[in-house]
């Protein structure tokens, strides 16, 4: 359902000094947020952590899983917990017959008659700050093209003129990952692809208890997960803070300048990162584009900052398990990355 309430306006031009003063507080708010939200699901903490990491890094996240594994519920509660207004959120279930107008707004017929190809984007994806697209791979290429531009360039073309979009965080879900080559570009844009799996085999009782509790909340129109721990602005601030950090040069004791990698990515962990990537490419033919490697760096740093506030550790390298492009790869990496890291 598309929502039409007017979006709230906020500034995003915080200075480094402003953010530095607030950084620790931000970190602890975001950690409270992710851990609190985890209480309302059974065995979804890893996925929620990943959502927070992706949201802070402003990287789109694809959630893959069969129906009924809480994919939509995760995003909805995430949105609620951030206290987002309706105008800031857009969600839609795509089908192959979905037309671009349903996602980016209908063509303004009046203006079309004047020869201008303008869409009325109010209440659609370009004006939301958090977006959720369900069954994303079922869409047609007209929509895929629009999405690629929005994800890549944060832009949206109106009559050939690029317009900035407000979208900052994009989650998508899918039951299946099709193999058509035409979808490769979009798949590559989703650096992280996480599986939402059924938990009934191992957590049957917990699942029933939590499910019934969820029904109660729904029936009584209660949303206890709205606890106000963090807001979307906190995530944007964290992103900006880390962006500042990526660009900074640090001076070590011997007055040598160190960049972000030298400062926050210990050599032995960096070696391990390289070794893992080479092994996955060589042994399992996992495709990792150059673009993805850079994005991964960013994601490692975000995770390390969020979880420990410090340097990247071997544990952060677990994000490599979310690089699979197909069900087989996802399944393989789920086991293989921890095995290589020695944590299986």
């Amino acid at each position: 359902m598309a929502k039409t309430e007017a979006p709230t306006l906020s500034r995003e031009d915080w200075s480094y000094e402003e953010l530095q003063a607030e950084a620790e507080e931000l970190r602890s708010r975001l950690n409270r947020f992710r851990l609190s939200l985890g209480r309302f699901f059974v065995q979804k903490q890893d996925l929620i952590d990943l959502m927070v990491v992706a949201a802070v890094a402003q990287e789109p996240l694809l959630i893959v899983g069969p129906p009924g594994t809480a994919k939509s519920d995760l995003v909805l509660k995430f949105k609620d917990a951030l206290g987002l207004g309706e105008g800031d959120y857009f969600e839609y279930m795509l089908t192959r017959f979905t037309e671009p107008s349903e996602i980016v707004g209908p063509i303004d017929i009046g203006k079309l008659r004047e020869g201008r190809y303008i869409r009325r984007e109010q209440g659609k994806l370009p004006t939301a700050r958090l977006g959720f697209l369900d069954e994303i791979f079922k869409s047609n290429s007209a929509i895929l093209n629009i999405l690629l531009t929005i994800i890549n360039e944060r832009k949206f073309y109106q009559d050939g003129v690029p317009m900035p979009v407000r979208l900052r965080v994009l989650f998508a879900a899918t039951n299946e990952i099709p193999e058509q080559a035409e979808l490769a570009a979009l798949k590559d844009r989703f650096c992280l692809k996480a599986e939402s799996r059924s938990v009934q085999d191992n957590y049957f009782t917990n699942l029933i208890d939590a499910g019934i509790q969820g029904e109660v909340y729904k029936g009584l129109a209660q949303k206890p997960w709205i606890e106000g721990h963090a807001t979307l602005d906190d995530m944007l601030k964290a992103n900006r803070y880390l962006t500042y950090q990526f660009g900074r040069r640090h001076r070590s004791g011997r007055s040598e300048e160190q960049n972000d990698r030298q400062m926050y990515f210990p050599a032995e962990v960096f070696d391990e990162f390289q070794r893992l990537v080479k092994t996955l490419i060589r042994e399992d033919h996992i495709f990792i584009s150059d673009r993805k490697l850079v994005k991964l760096y960013k994601l490692f740093r975000v995770r390390a900052w969020l979880f420990t506030g410090g340097t990247v550790s071997r544990d952060d390298l677990r994000l490599l398990a979310y690089l699979g492009e197909s069900h087989q790869e996802i399944e393989l990496l789920r086991d293989k990355v921890p095995m290589l890291l020695g944590e299986a």
């Binding site: 032995e268 070696d271 390289q274 070794r275 893992l276 080479k278 092994t279 060589r282 042994e283 290589l340």
Partner: peptide
């Protein structure tokens, strides 16, 4: 040996 282990020697990890 696994490729992952070989990389220790090839990339001089450590």
């Amino acid at each position: 040996p696994p490729y992952y282990t070989l990389l220790r020697a090839i990339d001089r990890i450590g």
